[in-house]
């Protein structure tokens, strides 16, 4: 037996992180690192899965066959993203069943953005452009995180996310070239989604209890505020390009800082939604549970078929 103490192991672990080494599933890691990653990755996977619901709402009502095909493909991608991350999370010693149980029981968190309703077709544009745009900013840096299976899942996801972002922007750009009603619809959608999209980066750093530790472990590479700023700086010119007005009177370019300044985020709203009081929290879980229950026969049939086939193999 090695006489190495926990402390020494932790020191070695931190040295590996500092050198930029990737931590793999079977490597020694502090229990808290494991727990934090299970929490973060679980929430991320659930967000991908619940994120299908607001968009799924519009599949049957997409305005053309082209838009419908694109939306179907995008929603299928989100399911795939959920699966990549669930897979990665399982390497940390939690079962997929347990994660799904926690989600369906309402014990697991997912991104607050998906508790807002999709009221118009323009919202599908806003989700792609803003929500997936914010996700790209987040995930591009998560792809350089210290936990190998998570980072690799992010690389894969980032490649696919650009399509999501562009199809959303295209929807809005098309509406903005349309009738006054279509332009109003696009603008109304941005008025509703802009602030919730900014909240996706999480609380301000001074109110983010886990940030310091996660930065030290390189699970996170930049603070919530830095990433939010990066998102805003990239998004404002895109809004201007197609004639959308972002609903923030304080938004202005700061030449000295080379960044956009922006107004105060309503964090009360964020915490209300996180704690279950958003517009759609209950609907989302209800829809998830219904989908799970109504899919039971498919899972049973697959099992019965597998049993039958293995029986045949044994008999043969």
């Amino acid at each position: 037996m090695l006489s190495t103490t926990e402390q020494e192991l932790e020191k070695k672990f931190q040295e590996r992180i500092d050198k930029g080494e990737s931590i793999e599933a079977k490597d020694w890691m502090p229990e808290r690192y494991r727990k934090q990653l299970i929490r973060m990755m679980g929430q991320h996977a659930h967000s991908e899965v619940v994120g299908m619901l607001p968009e799924g709402n519009w599949i049957t009502r997409a305005p053309s066959l082209r838009r419908k095909c694109v939306l179907l493909a995008k929603v299928q991608d989100e399911a795939g993203h959920g699966l990549y991350i669930y897979s990665g999370t399982e390497t940390l010693g939690i079962s997929r069943e347990q994660m799904l149980d926690e989600l369906l029981a309402g014990k697991a968190k997912y991104s607050s953005i998906f508790n807002y309703p999709t009221l118009s077709w323009a919202d599908i544009g806003a989700i792609g452009w803003l929500v997936d745009g914010a996700a790209i900013v987040n995930q591009t840096v998560l792809a350089k995180g210290s936990y190998g299976p998570y980072a690799r899942a992010m690389v894969r996801i980032c490649k696919e996310e650009n399509f999501h972002h562009k199809q959303g922007y295209e929807i809005l750009a098309t509406l903005m070239k349309g009738t006054p009603e279509q332009r109003a619809m696009a603008q109304d959608s941005i008025n509703r989604w802009w602030w919730p999209a900014l909240m996706m980066f999480g609380p301000s750093d001074k109110d983010s209890p886990n940030s310091a530790e996660l930065l030290r472990w390189k699970v996170k590479r930049y603070s919530n505020d830095e990433l939010r700023q990066r998102f805003i700086d990239r998004t404002v010119p895109q809004a201007e390009n197609i004639g959308l007005t972002l609903p923030d009177p304080d938004l202005k370019w700061n030449e000295e800082r080379q960044h956009y300044e922006f107004g105060t985020i309503n964090w009360n709203e964020f915490y209300e939604v996180i704690n279950g009081n958003g517009i759609c929290n209950k609907d989302r879980l209800k829809a998830r549970r219904k989908a799970h229950e109504e899919g039971a026969w498919v899972r049973e049939a697959a099992n019965a078929y597998a049993r039958k086939k293995s029986g045949e193999t044994i008999a043969a």
């Binding site: 299928q76 897979s87 899942a153 696919e160 697959a302 086939k309």
Partner: peptide, 23 residues
């Protein structure tokens, strides 16, 4: 590429296609 859950090898292949080769 990664992994999938499936009850048998045929469904494992189909799930693998849907998860790891959509493009």
């Amino acid at each position: 590429a990664g992994n999938v859950h499936a009850p048998d090898k045929e469904l494992a292949l189909m799930n693998a296609r849907d998860v790891y080769s959509r493009r």
